[in-house]
Every structure is written in C-alpha cells, then in structure tokens.
C-alpha cells in the first residue's frame, strides 16, 4: 500500500477552516455553558423547591444521555419544537451546550458546597444579604476552586465537538471524513485528523495541568 500525503496538503484550506469551526464550537459552547451552568447550580442549591426540582431533573437528564443521542435529538426535535430552521452549526451548538451546561452545573454545585459555612457567616456578620454574600464571597471562591475541573471539561469538549459531524456540521471531523470519502485516502486523512486534534489538544491539556497547579487551594 502506498501512502499519498499530498491529499492532506491539497485540502489544507478546507481543513484549516474546519479546524476553525471546531475551535469556535468549543469556545461558543463554553461561553454558554459556564454562566448557564452556574445559574443552574445556584437554582439547584438556593431556589424555591419546585424550581430546584426542575433544575435537578434537567441536570440528571442531560448528564446521563449519550451526547450523540442529544445531537440527533436536537437535529430532529428542536426544529419541530421551536419552529425554527436552525443551521447544523446552531443545532450542534445547542446540543453541546445542553450537555456541557449539565456537567458544569454539577461542577459548580460541588464548588459552591465546598465553601465552608463560616464564610457566609462572616459575610452576613458584616451586614451582607445572602445574595451579596453569594456574589461577593462564595461564587468568586467557588469559581477558583472549580477552574481546574472546568479546564478538564474544556479539553473533553474540544474532542467531543467531533460528534456533531453526524449532523453535517462542517467541523474538523466532518470535513476530514468528507475528504476521505472523496479520495479514498483513509489512512492519510485519519492520521491528519489525529495529528490536528492532538497538536491542538496537547497544549490545552498542559495548560490544564498548569491551571491545576496555580489554583491549588491555599487557605
């Protein structure tokens, strides 16, 4: 079997654009899932009981469904529910955000719970309301504590974006597979795809390690 690596070079523009989409999907998903995850966690911990139940139900549903199923579900069901003709990119983004928000909510919940009671009391003894104590004292500390976990989620998410290729989002996995289908250069394209994911993923993983060292809890 002869290998012809020129196929990768020939499709470099499509691959670069697709890599851009993968990065964009990751960033956009996190930009939604971090604030939403924090909100869901806060609802689960502090809201009126029925709202709390609703938030819990959401987390437990999406945390326990395979992501690829959520992607298909978003593709077929969301347009019917919303009446909107969403682009594959927007649909993929919605599916990823639903999934990662549920994960982040669990992360934030653990972080918020890990701040000891005395901190709230110290804030309240100064005359702060519960909301002020949460905003000024508890959330900033919880965010720092969960940053390493969020960073790990980020790295997983970067790779999991490949799952939205099943609904024809033109991200890296989809485009690489398209090229493979057109050229029959299976080994070359899979290797190229692996190389791109790895080259982008490895520095991120190293960054996570660094964040975990830097934000280790010191009191």
């Amino acid at each position: 079997m002869t290998l012809d690596w020129s196929v990768v070079w020939q499709h470099r523009e499509a691959l670069v654009a697709a890599t851009g989409t993968t990065i964009l999907l990751t960033i956009a998903t996190m930009a939604i899932a971090v604030p939403c995850g924090l909100m869901v966690a806060a609802l689960r911990l502090y809201a009126w009981a029925p709202v709390r139940t609703l938030a819990t139900a959401y987390v437990e549903l999406f945390r326990n469904l395979p992501l690829i199923l959520v992607v298909f579900w978003a593709f077929y069901v969301l347009p019917i529910w919303t009446g909107l003709g969403l682009s594959p990119l927007a649909t993929g983004l919605a599916a990823l955000a639903l999934n990662v928000t549920a994960y982040n909510a669990e992360t934030f919940r653990a972080g918020l719970n890990s701040i000891r009671r005395g901190q709230v009391e110290a804030a309240m003894a100064l005359g702060m309301s519960r909301t002020q104590a949460l905003r000024r004292v508890i959330v900033p500390q919880a965010l720092r504590r969960v940053l390493p976990v969020l960073a790990s989620t980020w790295v997983s998410l970067f790779k999991d974006t490949s799952l939205v290729s099943v609904i024809a989002v033109t991200e890296l996995a989809y485009v690489a597979m398209q090229v493979r289908a057109q050229t029959f250069r299976v080994l070359e394209m899979l290797t190229a795809m692996a190389a791109i994911y790895w080259l982008l993923g490895y520095p991120q993983a190293k960054l996570v390690d660094w964040i975990q060292r830097k934000y280790r809890v010191t009191e």
Partner: peptide, 14 residues
C-alpha cells in the same frame, strides 16, 4: 448586624 462587629475563632477572612 452592620452596627455590630464580629470576630470569629477561625478568622474567616475572605
């Protein structure tokens, strides 16, 4: 509460 200062055994600085 704002007119009473409180100091805790375990400091509870932020």
């Amino acid at each position: 509460r704002a007119r009473m200062g409180m100091v805790f055994q375990s400091f509870e600085l932020f």
